[in-house]
Computed example of a mutant assay.
Amino acid sequence: MSLDQATGSRHRTEHELDRGVRIGSLLMALAGVAFVGYGVVFLARTFFGTGFELGVATLNGVTPAELEAIDPAIMSYINHLHVATAAFIIATGIAITALAWYGVRSEQLWAWTTAVVAAVVGLAIALPMHYADLFAHDWVTHLGPIYLATIVFVVGAVLAYPGSRSESQITETEDV
């Protein structure tokens, strides 16, 4: 194999890595924006909607109005929890978007790892409760947007990972 062929092959590999990082980090950032959007909808429904989350019409047949009639503090407390939950969903989405757009896109392994850990921890804690059958909800409208954003995020993370490098790997590569 000639030197040009070897160099061309190496350049093509680097280009493919760069393309994977660009597309992957874009998908990760878009998923982060989707998390923010879900949080904003969650927040808006608290103040302007039914008082419950997307896809949740009642809590075991009990409406927000019925809960309010039993004790107004119940709905106030539920709204308080919804606002806090929405805030953390939005904050996590902002962090993931920034990590992906600025850190992952510039091939920083720490940014990729932090974005993935943040998403995994949030989803690993939040999603299992939905399978406990504690209340009825429409799976498609309640969890569908998060599952879609998660799929986009995972595809992006997989595409971006090969290009993510730690500082020691960058230094070793530059020394060669």
Rank of each mutant, 00 (worst) to 15 (best):
M75R: 11
L134F: 03
E68P: 01
T171A: 15
R45D: 14
A132R: 07
G122Y: 05
A95N: 04
G144E: 10
A160Y: 09
A132W: 03
Q169M: 01
Q5N: 14
M1W: 11
V62S: 03
A86S: 15
V104L: 09
A115C: 13
D175L: 10
T92Q: 10
G55R: 10
E107G: 10
F88P: 04
F153W: 00
V83T: 11
M129P: 06
M28S: 06
T150D: 13
A160M: 10
I170D: 10
Q169R: 01
A29W: 02
G103A: 12
T114Y: 03
P145R: 09
V62L: 02
F88S: 11
V56W: 02
A69W: 01
I94R: 00
A34G: 12
L17W: 03
A86C: 11
T97H: 00
A91Q: 06
A132K: 05
I90Q: 10
A29Y: 04
N60A: 07
A31S: 15
Q108K: 12
L127M: 13
G20D: 14
Y102W: 08
L134P: 04
W139T: 14
F135V: 03
H137P: 08
A91K: 01
A91G: 11
Y147E: 14
T97R: 00
D71T: 00
G61L: 12
S164H: 03
D4V: 04
G49L: 10
H80V: 05
W112M: 07
I74F: 04
A29V: 06
I90M: 15
Y38W: 00
I74N: 11
D18T: 12
M129V: 15
L30I: 08
T141V: 12
L54A: 13
T141D: 12
I70T: 07
Y102M: 08
I23C: 02
E174R: 12
V36S: 10
G122F: 08
L127R: 03
T141Q: 08
H11C: 11
H142M: 13
G32A: 10
A100K: 10
A126F: 01
L54C: 04
I96C: 14
T50C: 07
W139M: 15
T7P: 01
H142L: 12
L109P: 02
A86R: 08
R45T: 09
